[in-house]
Protein backbone atom coordinates (compact mmCIF):
# COMPACT_ATOMS: atom_id res chain seq x y z
CA UNK A 1 0.00 0.00 0.00
CA UNK A 2 1.36 3.39 -1.01
CA UNK A 3 0.19 5.21 2.09
CA UNK A 4 2.12 8.44 1.40
CA UNK A 5 0.53 8.47 -2.05
CA UNK A 6 -3.02 8.19 -0.72
CA UNK A 7 -2.30 10.83 1.90
CA UNK A 8 -0.85 13.13 -0.75
CA UNK A 9 -3.96 12.89 -2.94
CA UNK A 10 -6.31 13.26 0.01
CA UNK A 11 -4.48 16.28 1.41
CA UNK A 12 -4.25 17.86 -2.00
CA UNK A 13 -7.99 17.55 -2.51
CA UNK A 14 -8.75 18.80 0.98
CA UNK A 15 -6.49 21.79 0.35
CA UNK A 16 -8.61 22.57 -2.69
CA UNK A 17 -11.65 22.49 -0.45
CA UNK A 18 -9.98 24.70 2.13
CA UNK A 19 -9.24 27.37 -0.43
CA UNK A 20 -12.96 27.73 -1.06
CA UNK A 21 -14.01 27.00 2.50
CA UNK A 22 -15.99 30.14 3.13
CA UNK A 23 -18.01 29.71 -0.01
CA UNK A 24 -18.42 26.00 0.79
CA UNK A 25 -19.95 26.77 4.16
CA UNK A 26 -21.91 29.90 3.45
CA UNK A 27 -23.80 28.70 0.41
CA UNK A 28 -25.38 25.62 2.07
CA UNK A 29 -26.23 27.67 5.17
CA UNK A 30 -27.98 30.28 3.09
CA UNK A 31 -29.79 27.84 0.81
CA UNK A 32 -30.92 25.71 3.75
CA UNK A 33 -32.27 28.77 5.49
CA UNK A 34 -34.10 29.74 2.31
CA UNK A 35 -35.68 26.31 2.04
CA UNK A 36 -36.97 26.66 5.56
CA UNK A 37 -38.33 30.09 4.90
CA UNK A 38 -40.01 29.07 1.64
CA UNK A 39 -41.04 25.47 2.23
CA UNK A 40 -41.14 25.36 6.00
CA UNK A 41 -43.08 28.55 6.53
CA UNK A 42 -45.07 29.01 3.36
CA UNK A 43 -46.00 25.42 2.55
CA UNK A 44 -45.62 24.16 6.10
CA UNK A 45 -48.36 26.48 7.24
CA UNK A 46 -50.73 24.52 4.98
CA UNK A 47 -49.40 20.99 5.32
CA UNK A 48 -48.52 21.24 9.01
CA UNK A 49 -47.84 17.51 9.54
CA UNK A 50 -46.80 14.43 7.58
CA UNK A 51 -47.03 11.08 9.34
CA UNK A 52 -47.04 12.85 12.66
CA UNK A 53 -43.94 14.95 11.97
CA UNK A 54 -44.09 18.70 11.45
CA UNK A 55 -43.45 19.63 7.81
CA UNK A 56 -40.35 21.65 8.68
CA UNK A 57 -38.78 18.69 10.42
CA UNK A 58 -39.97 16.30 7.73
CA UNK A 59 -37.98 17.97 4.97
CA UNK A 60 -34.67 18.07 6.86
CA UNK A 61 -33.42 14.61 5.79
CA UNK A 62 -34.38 15.37 2.18
CA UNK A 63 -32.55 18.67 2.28
CA UNK A 64 -29.44 17.01 3.63
CA UNK A 65 -29.61 14.30 0.96
CA UNK A 66 -30.06 16.90 -1.76
CA UNK A 67 -26.86 18.58 -0.68
CA UNK A 68 -25.00 15.37 0.00
CA UNK A 69 -25.72 14.01 -3.47
CA UNK A 70 -24.96 17.14 -5.44
CA UNK A 71 -21.86 17.97 -3.41
CA UNK A 72 -20.45 14.43 -3.58
CA UNK A 73 -20.90 14.35 -7.32
CA UNK A 74 -19.54 17.81 -7.99
CA UNK A 75 -16.52 17.44 -5.71
CA UNK A 76 -15.44 14.07 -6.99
CA UNK A 77 -16.13 14.82 -10.64
CA UNK A 78 -14.29 18.11 -10.49
CA UNK A 79 -11.40 16.59 -8.54
CA UNK A 80 -10.53 14.13 -11.30
CA UNK A 81 -11.72 16.23 -14.24
CA UNK A 82 -9.47 19.15 -13.42
CA UNK A 83 -6.14 17.26 -13.72
CA UNK A 84 -7.39 15.86 -17.02
CA UNK A 85 -8.25 19.36 -18.14
CA UNK A 86 -4.92 20.94 -17.10
CA UNK A 87 -2.84 17.93 -18.12
CA UNK A 88 -1.44 17.28 -14.65
CA UNK A 89 -3.03 13.83 -14.73
CA UNK A 90 0.22 12.56 -16.28
CA UNK A 91 1.70 12.57 -12.82
CA UNK A 92 -1.07 10.49 -11.30
CA UNK A 93 -0.89 7.97 -14.13
CA UNK A 94 2.89 7.65 -13.90
CA UNK A 95 2.94 7.33 -10.11
CA UNK A 96 3.23 4.03 -8.23
CA UNK A 97 -0.33 4.23 -6.94
CA UNK A 98 -2.93 1.55 -7.53
CA UNK A 99 -6.40 2.31 -8.80
CA UNK A 100 -7.76 1.54 -5.40
CA UNK A 101 -5.41 4.09 -3.85
CA UNK A 102 -6.38 6.74 -6.40
CA UNK A 103 -10.05 6.16 -5.56
CA UNK A 104 -9.33 6.18 -1.86
CA UNK A 105 -7.69 9.58 -2.14
CA UNK A 106 -10.16 11.30 -4.45
CA UNK A 107 -13.39 9.70 -3.33
CA UNK A 108 -12.34 9.83 0.31
CA UNK A 109 -11.75 13.56 0.09
CA UNK A 110 -14.97 14.22 -1.83
CA UNK A 111 -17.01 12.18 0.65
CA UNK A 112 -15.34 13.91 3.60
CA UNK A 113 -16.28 17.29 2.24
CA UNK A 114 -19.88 16.40 1.50
CA UNK A 115 -20.36 14.79 4.92
CA UNK A 116 -18.92 17.93 6.47
CA UNK A 117 -21.43 20.02 4.55
CA UNK A 118 -24.26 17.70 5.52
CA UNK A 119 -23.33 18.26 9.16
CA UNK A 120 -23.45 22.01 8.66
CA UNK A 121 -26.91 21.75 7.13
CA UNK A 122 -28.05 19.57 9.99
CA UNK A 123 -26.76 22.13 12.45
CA UNK A 124 -28.42 24.98 10.54
CA UNK A 125 -31.69 23.07 10.39
CA UNK A 126 -31.65 22.52 14.14
CA UNK A 127 -31.85 26.29 14.54
CA UNK A 128 -35.18 26.37 12.70
CA UNK A 129 -37.01 23.19 13.67
CA UNK A 130 -36.91 20.62 16.46
CA UNK A 131 -34.90 17.60 15.33
CA UNK A 132 -35.09 14.13 16.64
CA UNK A 133 -32.69 11.43 15.50
CA UNK A 134 -34.06 8.04 16.44
CA UNK A 135 -31.20 5.94 15.06
CA UNK A 136 -27.99 7.99 15.01
CA UNK A 137 -25.81 5.06 13.99
CA UNK A 138 -28.03 4.25 11.03
CA UNK A 139 -28.14 7.90 10.15
CA UNK A 140 -24.35 7.95 9.91
CA UNK A 141 -24.36 4.70 7.94
CA UNK A 142 -26.79 6.13 5.37
CA UNK A 143 -24.87 9.36 5.25
CA UNK A 144 -21.53 7.68 4.70
CA UNK A 145 -22.79 5.13 2.18
CA UNK A 146 -24.56 7.79 0.16
CA UNK A 147 -21.55 10.10 0.25
CA UNK A 148 -19.20 7.33 -0.90
CA UNK A 149 -21.55 6.00 -3.56
CA UNK A 150 -22.20 9.38 -5.11
CA UNK A 151 -18.58 10.42 -4.87
CA UNK A 152 -17.77 7.30 -6.87
CA UNK A 153 -20.50 8.25 -9.29
CA UNK A 154 -18.99 11.74 -9.56
CA UNK A 155 -15.56 10.24 -10.15
CA UNK A 156 -17.01 8.28 -13.08
CA UNK A 157 -18.58 11.42 -14.51
CA UNK A 158 -15.28 13.29 -14.12
CA UNK A 159 -13.44 10.64 -16.11
CA UNK A 160 -16.13 10.36 -18.74
CA UNK A 161 -16.51 14.11 -19.31
CA UNK A 162 -14.27 15.64 -21.96
CA UNK A 163 -15.42 19.20 -21.32
CA UNK A 164 -17.12 21.38 -18.76
CA UNK A 165 -20.53 21.04 -20.42
CA UNK A 166 -20.51 17.28 -20.03
CA UNK A 167 -19.29 17.67 -16.48
CA UNK A 168 -22.43 19.66 -15.61
CA UNK A 169 -24.80 17.69 -17.79
CA UNK A 170 -25.63 14.67 -15.65
CA UNK A 171 -25.87 16.46 -12.31
CA UNK A 172 -28.11 19.09 -13.86
CA UNK A 173 -30.32 16.97 -16.09
CA UNK A 174 -30.58 13.76 -14.11
CA UNK A 175 -29.49 14.03 -10.51
CA UNK A 176 -31.21 17.24 -9.45
CA UNK A 177 -34.60 16.23 -10.93
CA UNK A 178 -34.33 12.78 -9.36
CA UNK A 179 -33.64 14.30 -5.97
CA UNK A 180 -36.57 16.71 -6.21
CA UNK A 181 -38.89 13.96 -7.45
CA UNK A 182 -37.59 11.43 -4.95
CA UNK A 183 -39.63 12.63 -2.01
CA UNK A 184 -37.29 15.23 -0.56
CA UNK A 185 -40.17 17.54 0.21
CA UNK A 186 -43.15 15.20 0.37
CA UNK A 187 -44.16 11.66 1.20
CA UNK A 188 -44.98 9.61 -1.87
CA UNK A 189 -48.25 8.66 -0.18
CA UNK A 190 -49.36 12.15 -1.10
CA UNK A 191 -49.07 11.30 -4.83
CA UNK A 192 -51.71 9.67 -7.04
CA UNK A 193 -51.17 5.86 -7.33
CA UNK A 194 -49.72 6.08 -10.86
CA UNK A 195 -47.01 8.53 -9.82
CA UNK A 196 -46.29 6.50 -6.71
CA UNK A 197 -45.39 3.58 -8.98
CA UNK A 198 -43.26 5.79 -11.22
CA UNK A 199 -41.45 7.15 -8.19
CA UNK A 200 -40.46 3.64 -7.14
CA UNK A 201 -38.11 3.61 -10.14
CA UNK A 202 -36.28 6.61 -8.77
CA UNK A 203 -33.20 5.36 -6.88
CA UNK A 204 -33.00 8.55 -4.85
CA UNK A 205 -36.31 7.72 -3.21
CA UNK A 206 -34.68 4.82 -1.40
CA UNK A 207 -31.85 6.96 -0.08
CA UNK A 208 -34.14 9.64 1.26
CA UNK A 209 -36.63 7.16 2.67
CA UNK A 210 -33.98 5.23 4.59
CA UNK A 211 -32.30 8.38 5.78
CA UNK A 212 -35.60 9.86 6.97
CA UNK A 213 -36.39 6.64 8.79
CA UNK A 214 -33.16 7.03 10.79
CA UNK A 215 -34.57 10.35 12.01
CA UNK A 216 -38.29 9.80 12.53
CA UNK A 217 -38.89 6.09 11.95
CA UNK A 218 -41.20 6.94 9.07
CA UNK A 219 -40.40 5.60 5.60
CA UNK A 220 -41.90 5.31 2.12
CA UNK A 221 -40.25 1.93 1.58
CA UNK A 222 -38.82 -0.55 4.04
CA UNK A 223 -35.40 0.17 5.50
CA UNK A 224 -33.94 -3.08 4.19
CA UNK A 225 -35.09 -2.16 0.67
CA UNK A 226 -33.32 1.16 1.09
CA UNK A 227 -30.12 -0.52 2.17
CA UNK A 228 -30.26 -3.04 -0.65
CA UNK A 229 -30.87 -0.35 -3.26
CA UNK A 230 -28.00 1.81 -2.12
CA UNK A 231 -25.71 -1.24 -1.98
CA UNK A 232 -26.71 -2.14 -5.52
CA UNK A 233 -25.88 1.34 -6.70
CA UNK A 234 -22.60 1.28 -4.82
CA UNK A 235 -21.74 -2.09 -6.41
CA UNK A 236 -22.64 -0.73 -9.83
CA UNK A 237 -20.34 2.28 -9.43
CA UNK A 238 -17.50 0.06 -8.26
CA UNK A 239 -18.01 -2.24 -11.24
CA UNK A 240 -17.93 0.68 -13.69
CA UNK A 241 -14.78 2.07 -12.10
CA UNK A 242 -13.07 -1.32 -12.27
CA UNK A 243 -13.93 -1.45 -15.95
CA UNK A 244 -12.61 2.09 -16.50
CA UNK A 245 -9.28 1.29 -14.94
CA UNK A 246 -9.01 -2.09 -16.58
CA UNK A 247 -9.51 -0.69 -20.05
CA UNK A 248 -7.84 2.67 -19.48
CA UNK A 249 -11.03 4.32 -20.78
CA UNK A 250 -10.51 8.08 -21.33
CA UNK A 251 -7.24 7.84 -19.43
CA UNK A 252 -4.52 5.76 -21.00
CA UNK A 253 -4.93 5.93 -24.74
Amino acid sequence: MNTPGVKAIYRFEMARTRRTLLQSIISPVISTSLYFVVFGSAIGSRITQIDGVSYGSFIVPGLIMLSLLTQSISNASFGIFFPKFTGTIYELLSAPVSYFEIILGYVGAAATKSIFLASIILATASLFVPLHIAHPVWMVVFLAMTAVTFSLFGFIIGIWAENFEKLQLIPLLIVTPLVFLGGSFYSINMLPPFWQTVTLFNPVLYLISGFRWSFYEIADVSVSTSLIMISVFLGLCIAIICWIFKTGYQLKD
Binding site: G5, A8, A95
Partner: peptide, 18 residues
Protein backbone atom coordinates in the same frame (compact mmCIF):
# COMPACT_ATOMS: atom_id res chain seq x y z
CA UNK B 1 -1.56 22.90 -10.85
CA UNK B 2 -2.94 26.39 -10.77
CA UNK B 3 -3.72 27.51 -7.27
CA UNK B 4 -1.21 25.45 -5.32
CA UNK B 5 2.06 26.96 -4.23
CA UNK B 6 5.41 25.62 -5.38
CA UNK B 7 6.42 23.94 -2.13
CA UNK B 8 3.06 22.20 -1.74
CA UNK B 9 3.00 20.82 -5.26
CA UNK B 10 6.54 19.45 -5.03
CA UNK B 11 5.82 17.92 -1.62
CA UNK B 12 2.67 16.39 -3.13
CA UNK B 13 4.70 14.74 -5.89
CA UNK B 14 7.09 13.19 -3.41
CA UNK B 15 4.20 11.68 -1.44
CA UNK B 16 2.44 10.50 -4.58
CA UNK B 17 5.51 8.48 -5.47
CA UNK B 18 5.39 6.74 -2.13
Amino acid sequence: ETFENVLATVTFSRGLFG
